[in-house]
């Protein structure tokens, strides 16, 4: 009995050691990022230290007043595109899911299977045709082609559909119809509020996906004042890296990563629950 307890404790200790090691590996890049964003270029060159410096605000000011790096404009562009994308994605995915869930029309099953079938096809395979289309529509160097396509988001649709099946009783809609509510009105004022938790989780995921997106924006955006954060970061790498103020480099990465991480840490419980909902479970 005592032996068994001992072996259980050893087993547990091994688990905790591995977990702490993984935590350290996962956090190490971020710890260095946060520390070095508080140090001056000259201090960073002297070598790594675990003690933070005092130049956080100075690095921040240096970054945002640098005329060669359109950081403020980039932030505004990224927030604008991501927010609109998040809104359109959740609104129209809920609408699509509502259609499949609530109505029994001809072709419903085909539509459902089609959406499920294209769910995993990566967008890059049609990027060439997409680019040519955007050129033809004279939409190059504009935000429209980055925002509008997100109306069709099969993964979010599937998440919404599963959520509706679990928590949207037909009776509510029937009752609304008896009360004479218009179908569009029912969707906007009765269905969407019920879907709030699902909308919130998916809005966060869509926002993050759009915020992080680099491939398409880099192909479509040219002018300096339309660049998004990932494009600005990528330029940092293609320019003469050695010439840069490292304090500014770390601050740029800090701005791109840390605000979202803070939001994540506040909402992590809901987000982690959302991870499993849209995919295959047991």
């Amino acid at each position: 009995m005592a032996n068994e307890k001992l072996s259980l404790n050893i087993h547990r200790a091994v688990c905790y050691i591995v977990l702490v090691l993984l935590t350290l590996i996962s956090l190490f890049p971020f710890i260095v990022l946060v520390i070095n964003s508080t140090r001056l270029h000259s201090e960073i060159l002297k070598g790594f230290s675990l003690l933070p410096g005092t130049a956080f605000l100075r690095n921040c000011r240096n970054l945002f007043t640098d005329d060669n790096i359109p950081m403020l404009k980039g932030l505004a562009n990224s927030v604008y595109i991501s927010a609109l994308t998040a809104f359109l994605t959740v609104y129209f995915s809920a609408m699509t899911a509502y259609s499949v869930h609530m109505y029994r029309f001809k072709g419903r099953n085909v539509a459902f299977r089609f959406i499920m079938l294209v769910m995993m096809v990566p967008p890059q395979v049609s990027a060439l045709g997409f680019l040519r289309l955007v050129i033809k529509m004279h939409l190059m160097d504009s935000f429209m082609p980055l925002i509008l396509p997100c109306v069709a988001a099969p993964v979010v649709f599937f998440f919404m559909l599963q959520y509706m099946e679990a928590s949207l009783p037909f009776e509510i809609v029937e009752a609304a119809r008896v009360d004479g509510s218009h179908e569009i009105r029912t969707f906007n004022t009765i269905i969407l509020p019920i879907m709030k938790p699902a909308l919130a989780v998916q809005a966060i995921f869509s926002f993050v996906t759009s915020w992080n997106n680099y491939f398409m924006p880099a192909l479509i955006i040219n002018s300096k004042d339309k660049k998004t954060i990932p494009i600005i970061i990528a330029q940092l790498r293609s320019a003469e890296y050695m010439k840069f103020d490292l304090g500014k480099v770390y601050m740029m990465i800090f701005v791109a990563i840390i605000p979202l991480m803070i939001v994540y840490l506040i909402l992590s419980r809901h987000i982690i629950k959302g991870v499993t909902l849209g995919s295959v479970k047991g």
Partner: peptide, 19 residues
């Protein structure tokens, strides 16, 4: 632990690579 190990999934790959 779950919060920490999931965190890098949400990070901008461009910024992560630059980091």
């Amino acid at each position: 632990f779950k919060t920490v190990i999931y965190m890098p999934n949400l990070i901008m790959a461009a910024a992560f690579a630059m980091l």
